[in-house]
């Protein structure tokens, strides 16, 4: 990019011939530069104007980027008034200390992505300050139930000493299996571990994880990683192969 800009500058300002063709080329480059400035530098220009306390620029910023702020807020609350309060809180925090947060933005990412990250953080802080750390339970509707459902009595009738013993054995086996799997995952390298966690524990799509980690063949990568995990778990003496396969199938969501 710098090379292109350098060549452009040389063509525009260099000691070239001033014939018609050279002037045409210079004009074309000038148009390209104007377009690049118009489309490419809009975020920086807008942010610069906002930091200079330009009210019109701030309004333009609000009109242009509120969708990203709002998108981060609606994930954590459904209440209209609460959403409004959080939204205004985020804007207030962005304006705080003469746009200190915006001033810290170094253009390492897109402004919209950074705003999403910041808005999520500010929204969580706001809601946690109001409801405590487990504010997300507010979304779960608590319904009072008069007495226990009938099917619980039916299930209670089926509980026998044999079934209790079998259940305890399954629980113990599962705990051992989970700890063995955790140990196998810990032995993976960072990239493999991150991919497995994002896909099988956080529920992201394999395609999305491939985009994040810049893996052109994410499916093959994950297949190899699962094979590694299986190999580690097979070395554990306590479990037979069929149990490991069942456990792995239960963990995978796709």
């Amino acid at each position: 990019m710098q090379a292109i800009m350098g060549n452009t500058f040389a063509i525009l300002c260099g000691p070239g011939r001033n014939d018609a063709r050279t002037l045409d080329i210079r004009g074309a480059f000038l148009v390209i530069i104007v377009f690049m400035k118009w489309f490419g530098g809009s975020d920086a220009d807008l942010l610069r104007a906002v930091l200079e306390d330009d009210t019109a620029a701030w309004q333009k910023f609000i009109l242009g980027y509120s969708n990203f702020i709002y998108g981060a807020i609606v994930r954590y609350t459904d209440d209209y008034d609460e959403k409004m309060a959080v939204y205004l809180h985020v804007l207030e925090k962005l304006r705080e200390d003469r746009f200190e947060r915006l001033r810290s933005f170094a253009f390492k990412s897109k402004l919209s992505t950074w705003l999403t990250v910041v808005s999520r953080r500010l929204a969580l802080d706001f809601l946690r300050s109001r409801y405590g750390r487990d504010f997300s339970l507010k979304k779960v509707r608590v319904v009072s139930i008069d007495g226990e459902p009938a099917y619980l009595h039916l299930l209670a009738d089926t509980v026998t000493p044999e079934t209790k013993l079998a259940a305890a054995e399954r629980r113990e086996n599962r705990q051992h299996l989970e700890s063995s799997m955790r140990q196998a995952i810990d032995k993976l390298d960072d990239r493999e571990r991150l991919a497995v966690q994002l896909v099988y524990f956080q529920g992201l799509k394999i395609k999305e994880v491939g985009r994040l980690l810049k893996m052109p063949s994410a499916y093959k990568f994950l297949a190899r990683t699962l094979k590694k995990i299986r190999g580690e778990m097979e070395r554990a003496p306590r479990f037979i192969r069929a149990e490991i396969e069942d456990a792995l199938e239960g963990e995978s969501h796709e």
Partner: peptide, 24 residues
């Protein structure tokens, strides 16, 4: 946090005009 941000970015929403009126 990474998972949530990826999910937020993959589902764009449109802010109601009331919010913009209040902000502006």
């Amino acid at each position: 946090a990474l998972t949530e941000i990826v999910e937020i970015r993959s589902r764009p929403v449109k802010i109601p005009s009331d919010f913009l009126r209040s902000a502006l």
